Amino acid sequence: SKWSPSQVVDWMKGLDDCLQQYIKNFEREKISGDQLLRITHQELEDLGVSRIGHQELILEAVD
Rank of each mutant, 00 (worst) to 15 (best):
W3T: 00
V9W: 01
S32E: 07
G33S: 04
E45T: 13
E43R: 14
E45D: 10
Q55L: 00
K2F: 14
V62F: 01
E29L: 09
G14P: 00
N25T: 14
S1Q: 01
L37N: 10
D17M: 08
K13P: 01
D34K: 13
I31V: 13
E45Y: 15
S4G: 11
R38N: 11
L57D: 03
L15P: 03
I31Q: 01
I58Q: 03
W3D: 06
S32G: 12
V49M: 07
H41T: 14
I23Q: 07
Q21N: 06
L19E: 03
G53D: 15
S32T: 15
W3C: 03
K2T: 15
D63F: 08
V62N: 02
D34C: 09
N25H: 13
K2H: 15
I39E: 04
G48P: 03
E29D: 12
K30M: 11
E43L: 06
L37Y: 08
L37E: 09
K13C: 07
Q20H: 15
T40P: 02
Q35G: 06
K30Q: 13
Q21M: 11
L37W: 07
G33N: 00
V49W: 01
G14E: 09
Y22G: 03
Y22E: 03
S32H: 07
I39W: 03
L59R: 07
S32N: 15
L44S: 02
Q21A: 11
L15E: 07
Y22C: 02
G48H: 02
V62K: 07
D10P: 00
E60P: 01
V8N: 00
H41S: 14
R51S: 15
W11F: 07
V62R: 13
G48R: 02
R51N: 15
S4R: 06
W3K: 06
K30N: 12
K30G: 13
S32F: 05
D16Y: 04
F26N: 01
R51D: 15
E29G: 13
Q20E: 07
P5A: 13
V8T: 05
G48W: 00
V8Q: 00
K2P: 10
I39S: 05
V8Y: 00
E56G: 08
K30E: 11
E60D: 14
L37D: 08
I39R: 03
M12W: 05
N25M: 14
K30I: 05
E27M: 09
C18Y: 01
L57V: 06
D16W: 05
Q55C: 06
L44C: 02
Q7I: 03
L15M: 08
I58T: 03
R28E: 11
L57T: 06
